[in-house]
């Protein structure tokens, strides 16, 4: 009997084991280490940041915390620098991402062409994107130096006005937009080109047979099939640009006259110059909410389309 029982148990255990293998619980177990890791490096700081938004806490004495409820958010509502920084962040993001997308698309269509030397051109076009930001900023600062910067030498030779453009209150912001665009257009181009190359040539042929012109082929064949990649690129770059700190901080520090102050630089100054960690965290929370909202709405609209 004992033998029979034992023999009877084996297939059952085996079945259960197989069942377990096919169950999603094994899947959960397999992703558990990664989940714990993600929780430690992403969730904890995020939750801690949100918690700090409701505290008064100094960078110099981080152990001394006082719960202040919504006071940090109320202060933000009356903070003129915050409002300016928010507006300039939104404007910078909208301008930079729009221009990047349009120019990236144009470049992708050029790169897609099978003409001699295009492989080399494709490689070269990525240089701006792989360049470290600090190098890019130094390069731009050099180019717009008054007197010896190449940009000013050319402008001077043409009889146009020359100045240190990062110090010009009207030109500093457009220059920041230009740096974002200059840097990221190649990345858009490569991603969009890859999406365009995956569209079967037969679809274009069919469209031609139906009498579709170049613009119609682009509108009805190309555009719908690169929309998913476009969505990913736009969402990622909106987030990158909205949160970008280095380009502004290294080139203008937020000046002149606060004309290039963006939320990321203002958060940094608040935390590291005025030591107000709680207030800086509350601005970080506002940034997080704005980005989450944008992403959710954009993804939803894209799904609907």
């Amino acid at each position: 009997m004992a033998t029979n029982t034992s023999q009877g148990r084996s297939p059952r255990y085996s079945e259960e084991f197989k069942s377990l293998l096919s169950e999603t619980w094994l899947g959960y177990a397999l992703i558990l280490p990664a989940t714990i890791l993600v929780a430690a490096i992403i969730l904890y700081p995020t939750v801690r940041g949100i918690q700090m938004a409701f505290l008064e806490v100094s960078l110099l004495q981080p152990g001394e915390e006082t719960f202040v409820g919504l006071e940090n958010f109320a202060e933000m509502a009356n903070d003129a620098v915050f409002r300016t920084a928010l507006w300039q962040t939104v404007l910078l993001t909208a301008l930079a991402v729009s221009l990047q997308y349009l120019l990236g698309m144009a470049l992708a269509m050029v790169l897609k062409e099978k003409v001699p030397g295009m492989r080399f051109f494709r490689s070269v076009s990525m240089v701006t994107w792989v360049l470290p930001i600090i190098v890019m900023v130094i390069l731009f600062r050099f180019m717009v130096q008054n007197g010896f910067g190449p940009a000013n030498i050319v402008l001077g030779a043409l009889g146009l006005e020359t100045t240190y453009w990062f110090g010009d209150p009207e030109m500093a912001f457009p220059l920041i937009v230009l740096m974002h665009v200059w840097r990221n257009v190649p990345f858009y181009a490569i991603a969009l080109m890859a999406a365009m190359n995956s569209i079967p040539e037969t679809q274009y042929e069919a469209a031609r047979l139906d009498g579709a012109g170049a613009l119609q082929r682009f509108r009805h064949v190309t555009l719908p099939q690169i929309s998913y990649v476009s969505m990913i690129m736009i969402v990622l770059h909106v987030i990158f640009t909205f949160n970008n700190f280095e380009i502004v901080y290294l080139s203008t520090g937020g000046g002149p006259l606060g004309n290039t102050e963006v939320l990321a630089t203002y958060v940094y100054k608040t935390a590291f110059e005025t030591y107000a960690l709680g207030y800086a965290a509350s601005m970080g929370v506002v940034m997080l909410v704005i980005m989450l909202t944008f992403t959710a709405v954009y993804v939803k609209l894209e799904d609907t389309d």
Partner: peptide
């Protein structure tokens, strides 16, 4: 996944370049 993506993108700034403060 979306939340993690946003958090990672937020953490990495502009694509995670290795730019150091001047």
């Amino acid at each position: 996944g979306l939340g993690a993506g946003i958090a990672l993108a937020g953490c990495s700034g502009d694509g995670g370049d290795g730019g150091s403060l001047e």
